[in-house]
Design a protein around this nucleic acid. Structure first.
Length: 385
DNA sequence: GGGACCGGGGTCTGCCATGGTT
DNA sequence: AACCATGGCAGACCCCGGTCCC
């Protein structure tokens, strides 16, 4: 029955704790300490399997006790389960000491089982490196809970340290680094070489376009698009080529676009960006806009290409139906920033009070909720204004 | 005081493929 | 052969408010 292995696991947990208390042993010594089974095990369909492929049973028991979703973990990294020595208890204690809940720890291991192969020394070192950027353990725990892979995937702390130095040397300040590590933690697990390649790629693009300060350009693009360093240079180059070709941009137009809000669309998948450009063109042609308007819109509001074809189409339709003209949208494309739901709601409210867009313009749609509500209250109080 | 302009902030992982190592 | 570390991919916006100008 299950009671016997359960008891054994409990004993092993207890033993580890006693060992730690008595001798202050470190993580490597505090592994599960159960050698891989030497005899063959029986699988579900009763076929004997060679011992080499056997899973470490005491490890399985420990993980079960810890509330780890063993099936999920096994599916992700089966090799971990065949290791003779692992450090799940050390890891759990470590994370707990940093404020992670039992549930969070179980979830972290379920999603990234290889985490239990890291030693305490390694974990301490890595944590300290992250603490160079974060003020509190709590922030790090929340990122681990969100994305365990970002923290645990690499075993190379030296590389992490070099990355921090490299990113700092680009002129990114501590606020930028904080945002970068919060938003795209994978960046810091990239090899230094990969990050360097992206930076060089950006610098080359700037130089090719006749930019005067490639280093500043790379820094600007990165701080505008925190995801860029976890994309491939191929993706970024292809997107730039596509933008240039379809919009027939000059070098300086393209340069301005890229170091402006255009940076934010560089990391879209190549097909998605292409699809969005095409569907935007089709939609605008169907609404009777000349080609020059399409280019103007993209240059003044590149984020329009971030919006998926269906969303964009319904957003435009809803604005037009609400009595707003395409000319007004082109003059004030930021109204497209807001959700279709938000726009629809505001249009209804404005219609109710008889708001005249021809007379007053459409700026009211591009304002915060607070400001919009205040404006509506005033309109209700003195409808003649 | 009101509106226009403009920039900033939040947020993004979990999976697969592959090449190197043991 | 198994395992590890790492690269790459798909997925797809919305909202707020400081500040300056009139």
């Amino acid at each position: 029955m299950a009671a016997v292995p359960g008891l054994r696991a409990l004993l092993s947990l207890r033993r580890s704790l006693i060992l730690q208390q008595a001798f202050g042993l470190n993580a490597v010594q505090l592994t599960t300490c159960f050698p891989r089974s030497l005899c063959s095990v029986t699988t579900k369909n009763n076929e004997p399997k060679p011992a080499v492929n056997a899973e470490n049973e005491s490890l399985l028991e420990n993980l079960n006790l810890m509330g780890v979703d063993v099936n999920m973990a096994r599916q992700r990294q089966p090799g971990v389960f065949r290791k003779a020595f692992t450090n799940e208890q050390g890891l759990a204690q470590f994370l707990q000491s940093k404020g992670a809940s039992r549930k969070a720890i179980a979830s972290i291991i379920s999603r990234y089982p290889r985490a239990i192969t890291r030693s305490i020394n390694h974990l301490e070192q890595r944590w300290q490196l992250w603490r160079n950027i974060f003020q509190t353990d709590e922030e790090i725990v929340s990122i681990l809970d969100r994305s365990p892979e970002s923290f645990f995937r690499s075993s190379d702390n030296g590389n992490l340290e070099k990355n921090i130095h490299f990113l700092t040397s680009l002129g990114l300040n501590s606020k930028d680094l904080h945002r970068l590590l919060t938003t795209a933690p994978r960046t810091f697990s990239n090899s230094l070489e990969l990050n360097r390649q992206m930076v060089e790629c950006l610098e080359d693009i700037c130089a090719e376009l006749g930019g005067k300060d490639p280093e500043q350009f790379a820094k600007t693009v990165i701080s505008r698009n925190l995801y860029i360093l976890i994309r491939s240079t191929k993706r970024v180059k292809t997107n730039i080529d596509n933008l240039r070709a379809t919009l027939k941009l000059t070098d300086s137009e393209l340069l301005d676009l890229l170091q402006g809000h255009g940076a934010e669309i560089l990391d879209l998948s190549n097909e998605y960006l292409k699809k969005n450009i095409k569907s935007l063109q089709q939609k605008m042609v169907s609404l009777g806009c000349p080609k020059s308007d399409i280019k103007k819109l993209i240059i003044s509001y590149p984020m329009v290409l971030y919006i998926g074809p269906d969303t964009l189409s319904s957003k435009l339709d809803c604005l037009l139906k609400g009595g707003i003209t395409m000319k007004q949208i082109l003059q004030k494309p930021k109204v497209l920033d807001y959700s279709t739901q938000n726009i629809t709601g505001r249009l209804e409210e404005l219609q109710r009070v008889g708001y005249d867009f021809q007379k007053n313009g459409i700026n009211i749609l591009d304002s915060s909720r607070k400001r919009f509500v205040a404006k509506m209250e005033k309109l209700a109080a003195s409808p003649d204004d």
